[in-house]
C-alpha cells in the first residue's frame, strides 16, 4: 500500500530553489536510500516533509496515507505530521538546555498517544517502557536525566534520535545522514537498532552520502538525488556503483 507519494514538488528557502520537480513514491514495508553529493539539498527534502517553517512549497503535492486515505501532508502542522507517524531523525539534533531527555520523551510520546485517543503513560510506566527501548541502542540510563542532547557526543545524539524513533514507532521514518559523525561501533548499534524497528507497516527513507550505512541497513531501492530531483533509481547495486565511481559520472 502506498504510504507517501510526492508529485512534481517544488520548494524554496528564502529565494533559493531547492526542490525542482521531485517525484517519489514509498510503500509500507520498504526501505529507500536517497544518495547524493554533499550540498545537493538532500536535507532540505527531509525538512520539507517534516514541515520546517523556513521552506515554502511553490508547486506540486505530498500525499500521505492516513487511515487508508491519501491526505495532503502539507496541510498539517509540524506536530500533527509527527502525531500521524512522520518522523525525521535529524542530521544535527538540536540541544535543548533545561529540558530533561526523559521529560521530553514522555511529553512527546504522550502527545502521540493522546492524538490517537489512547491513555497517556504515567511517569513510572513510561520509565519502564523507555528503559526497554534504551537497551536496543545500548544507551545508559543516565541519558534520561540529562538535558536533551546537551553535552552529548555526535554519536550519542544520533543514538538519541533513534531512541525517539523507537519510542514513537513512526510509520514513515526519514533518517537524515544518521551515519555522519558515527564511529564504526556506533554505526553498528544504530544500524541494528533501525533493523529491529523495521516492519511491514512502516517505511524508512535513509538519506546518506556514503554506502557504509547501507552495509547495515539493506535498502530495497536506491535513488540518486541531485539538483533538486531524483536523477536515477535502482537497487542496492546502485549504491555500490556510487561507492566505486563517486558522483562525477552523473554530470
Amino acid at each position: 500500500m502506498t504510504m507517501l507519494e510526492i508529485k512534481n514538488l517544488h520548494a524554496k528557502i528564502e529565494e533559493k530553489e531547492v526542490l525542482k520537480g521531485l517525484n517519489f513514491k514509498v510503500n509500507a514495508g520498504e526501505v529507500h536510500a536517497i544518495m547524493g553529493p554533499n550540498g545537493s539539498g538532500k536535507s532540505s527534502f527531509s525538512k520539507i516533509i517534516a514541515g520546517h517553517p523556513a521552506y515554502t512549497v511553490t508547486a506540486g503535492e505530498v500525499l500521505y496515507e492516513i487511515n487508508f486515505k491519501m491526505k495532503n501532508l502539507l496541510e498539517l502542522s509540524v506536530d500533527e505530521r509527527a502525531k500521524e507517524g512522520v518522523f525525521l531523525a535529524m542530521q544535527y539534533p538540536i540541544e535543548v538546555p533545561g529540558v530533561s531527555n526523559f521529560h521530553f520523551l514522555q511529553m512527546s510520546y504522550n502527545a502521540v498517544l493522546k492524538h490517537h485517543g489512547s491513555e497517556e503513560f504515567s511517569e513510572n510506566d513510561f520509565r519502564i517502557f523507555v528503559k526497554e527501548k534504551m537497551k536496543l541502542l545500548q544507551m545508559r540510563e543516565d541519558f534520561l536525566d540529562r538535558d536533551v542532547n546537551v553535552g552529548f557526543s555526535g554519536g550519542e545524539k544520533k543514538r538519541n534520535e533513534i531512541l525517539q524513533m523507537a519510542v514513537l514507532s513512526p510509520r514513515l521514518c526519514i533518517l537524515d545522514e544518521t551515519d555522519s559523525g558515527l564511529d564504526i561501533d556506533s554505526l553498528k548499534i544504530v544500524g541494528e537498532g533501525v533493523n529491529k524497528l523495521r516492519s511491514k507497516n512502516n517505511a524508512i527513507i535513509l538519506i546518506t552520502h556514503y554506502q557504509r550505512l547501507l552495509d547495515f541497513i539493506r535498502p530495497d531501492f536506491v535513488h540518486i538525488y541531485a539538483d533538486g530531483k531524483i536523477q536515477q533509481t535502482g537497487g542496492p547495486e546502485l549504491a555500490l556503483k556510487l561507492e566505486k565511481q563517486g558522483y562525477d559520472w552523473l554530470k
Partner: peptide, 24 residues
C-alpha cells in the same frame, strides 16, 4: 521545530523551552 517534529504542539514547545530557560 525540533520539539514540534516530535509531536509536541507549538504552544507546549514554547512553554517547555521557556521553562528550560528559567529553570536553570
Amino acid at each position: 521545530f525540533y520539539l514540534q517534529s516530535r509531536g509536541i504542539s507549538k504552544t507546549a514547545a514554547i512553554q517547555l523551552l521557556a521553562r528550560g530557560f528559567v529553570f536553570e
